[in-house]
Amino acid sequence: MVEKLKPSRVVFNILNYSFMIVFAFLCIIPIWHVTMASLSNPRLLMSASGIIWKPLGEVTFDGYKLVLQTASVLKGYGNTIIYVVWNTVVGTLITVIAGYLVSRKSFKLKNPLMIFILFTMMFSGGLIPSYQVNRALGLINSRWALMIPGIINAFYITMMKSGFEQLPDSYEESAKLDGAGPMTIMFKILAPLVKANIAVIAMFTVVMHWNSWYPASIYLPAARDAWPLQLIMRELLIKNDTATVLIATGDASGVVNYTANLVKYCVVIVGTLPVLMAYPFAQKYFVTGVTLGGVKG
């Protein structure tokens, strides 16, 4: 039997769906605009205003050619993958261990350690002290500058702690009675029960390190071969600034190469496409992440 919907429910559904469609549309428009602009005639693009619904003039891939022909872009992809994989795998593992440790009621230094961790979340050492520490450790212009200092995040530890604390004590007690040691309890019994937390932390880490350029600009100024994709993209963007290109053509009879005008759109697509493609597969974990910490029934 199909239940007949009340009129108020129908109205609600119409409004709800309308709102969600408009909201989805608003989210898609910027990506659509950038994609269409990246395929447009660069000279026509300069004279366009507002949202671009379809490529202006004949479709061109010149902007993508310019971006992808830059040798360092492919190298940047490789570097970014290294940083993302390392920080996600190792960072998440350490976060799980740290979260488990500070969530144990029997751990006597639980509170002091938590204060220690929370302190770093609220007060940063600042750029110059951080730089000096990294320099003293010999990390400047080394890949390890992006792979060691930022490997663990205090906020993620609190997330993991919260996840472990929500599990009944009886799980751990039962495991102990069956002869399980701390490692077995943590990895085989409790960790699978908080895999949603782990997945969220892993996804946040992936996104954060995929988009990261600032630490590399500070700690790897001369190690261009180790730059992540986003830093290379940023430099490419500055190099191909429209004004720079127009001023570089110093004579009235000079030929202006407008293709550079496409670069700012192409780097957005090239830089975000992999994450955009991966997002649908990880979407359910993001939804879980939003509800983390909520009251469970």
Partner: peptide
Amino acid sequence: KKKLVALVLACTMIVSIFAG
């Protein structure tokens, strides 16, 4: 004792801020 340990750790962090 725990509070004392926490206090020492927090002070260590504050001092390290001024390292640079």
